[in-house]
């Protein structure tokens, strides 16, 4: 029997009368790169938010490596190795890019933070710069995030999520807000920064060219439910998916 990294079973979430997720079940094996597609409001981000603890599912269960994580908060889930990036980058605007990474690394490596040991520890600084370099962001290291353009912020947001060497990473629309000709370059950068490793990845994406180029499995959402799940070539030609998801995009 395969040991799944992520097992979501019959997840449901309602906001008042609105059903944001209904019977969502999904197993993700180690090393898979899964793309979640669906029109706006289909339930992709709700799913990501449930897995990462931002919202608690109304029903169902979520397991990470066979261990129950349902109902835990973002902090406990991050500590167990599930990290995420955000559709709107969540960064510390007044700190520099290097400081943002430094905070993330300090929390990841030195769980119990020191009251006297300096924040600019040489080892951590080196690691932060190395990580920025992998993302092609070393030139921005000393600039406050508030001065950085949107695309750079998106990459920095993802870099922060990687600081914990997560078991599973969820990227919420990594290429949204980035121009069409930069999208591929950006995905290449992200994947290269992840070392093309066996890091299990879930990402939300609207651009079907990106989906077919980078995902090895596609899960289509519609109206809070999963309507198709499989290899990109199969899912993208599925009539229901064409009708409810990709058809709308064209």
């Amino acid at each position: 029997m395969t040991q799944y990294v992520l097992e979501a079973e019959n997840l449901g979430k309602t906001f008042g009368a609105l059903v944001a997720a209904e019977n969502v079940s999904l197993q993700v094996a180690a090393g898979q790169r899964v793309c979640l597609i669906g029109s706006n409001g289909a339930g992709k981000t709700t799913f990501v938010n449930m897995v990462t603890g931002y919202i608690k599912p109304s029903s169902g269960s979520i397991k990470l490596d066979g261990q129950e994580i349902t109902g835990l908060g973002p902090r406990q889930i991050a500590q167990r190795g599930v990290c995420r990036s955000f559709q709107i980058p969540q960064l510390c605007l007044e700190l520099t890019a290097a400081e943002n990474i430094l905070v993330a690394l300090t929390v990841a490596r030195r769980g119990a933070l020191s009251f006297w040991r300096g924040a600019y520890d040489a080892d951590l600084c080196d690691e932060a710069i190395a990580l920025l370099e992998r993302f092609g962001l070393a030139g921005h290291a000393e600039r406050p995030v508030s001065e950085l353009p949107g695309g750079v912020r998106k990459l920095l947001d993802i870099a922060m999520a990687l600081c914990r060497d997560p078991r599973l990473i969820l990227l919420d629309e990594p290429t949204s807000g980035v121009s069409v000709d930069e999208k591929f370059g950006m995905m290449d950068t992200v994947l290269r920064a992840m070392d093309g490793s066996d890091l299990t990845t879930l990402f939300v994406e609207h651009d079907m060219d990106i989906v077919s180029a980078y995902a090895n499995r596609v899960v289509a959402f519609y109206s809070g439910r999963i309507i198709a799940d499989g290899a990109p070539a199969e899912v993208l030609v599925d009539p229901e998916v064409k009708r409810y998801v990709t058809g709308n995009a064209k």
């Binding site: 995420r84 969540q90 960064l91 914990r164």
Partner: peptide, 8 residues
Amino acid sequence: LRVEYLGT
């Protein structure tokens, strides 16, 4: 929010 998501 981000700090909480970093795991502290």
